[in-house]
Design a protein around this nucleic acid. Structure first.
Lengths: 119, 119
DNA sequence: CCAATAGTTCGATAATAATGGAACTATTGA
DNA sequence: TCAATAGTTCCATTATTATCGAACTATTGG
């Protein structure tokens, strides 16, 4: 039963976290996890090859954002919200809120009238 | 009198902002500006060649974080705090707070007993 | 035990970004 | 007008990241 290394909270750095979240795909993973937790990797692939997805998850783990637990044949991912919040209060929340702001603005631009945009 | 292009707030993206701040040098520039505003580039160079500094300022401007005004022979930089906050409330503040947390933790590690660490 | 599933690791290639020297621009003070 | 100052722009080089196929690992169900 292989498990993963997760850095402890004291080791996390702001730049590493910001870098991890500065990639649109990784940010979308984190957003999905914030909405539904835990989740395996598969539903978050978005058409990418598995090796690429695996790489991005590794970056997120190294930054301390995501914890991956091996559960049977799937790897369950969750955000390290409490820990992150203990170390950098409000940081993750502010970033997620900013994403929400941004995407609702885009929706408005793309949906001028009464359409609704949930896919 | 040459001036700079600054993207308008509506154009700013979260990933661009996070990427801009994921570089330690750029983050230190932003931190300095948050403490003292406006400032020319020169005092923030930190021993780097001017072309490099100029590049990093361009990234910060493109991300919408910094505004540069030409004032005589110097270029005065300031944070676009209000605008940024209007677009992504609390984002910049949370990131700056996280930096403060991080650096105070490092100070504690480096200063075990009663020393004080202001240089 | 075998096949299927879910993901990782490796290795090569391509894309992005950082670095720094040299030449250039704009502004001011002498 | 000339020299000095403060940055920028251009360019080449290097370093970091991302991408993706192929081979590999661990776990489970049959």
């Amino acid at each position: 039963m292989k498990q993963y290394d997760h850095p402890c909270v004291a080791e996390l750095t702001v730049t590493q976290i910001l870098h991890a979240l500065s990639d649109p795909f990784r940010l979308s993973i984190v957003r999905s996890l914030a909405a539904l937790q835990p989740q395996p990797c598969a539903p978050l692939q978005g058409g990418r090859p598995k090796s690429s997805v695996s790489h991005h998850f590794a970056v997120l783990r190294a930054a301390g954002l995501v914890r991956t637990e091996v559960v049977g044949v799937t790897h369950m991912n969750s955000l390290r919200e409490q820990e992150l919040n203990a170390r950098f209060p409000g940081l993750l929340a502010a970033i997620l809120a900013a994403c929400a702001t941004e995407s609702s603005a885009t929706e408005q631009a793309a949906t001028p009238s009464g359409e609704h945009s949930l896919p």
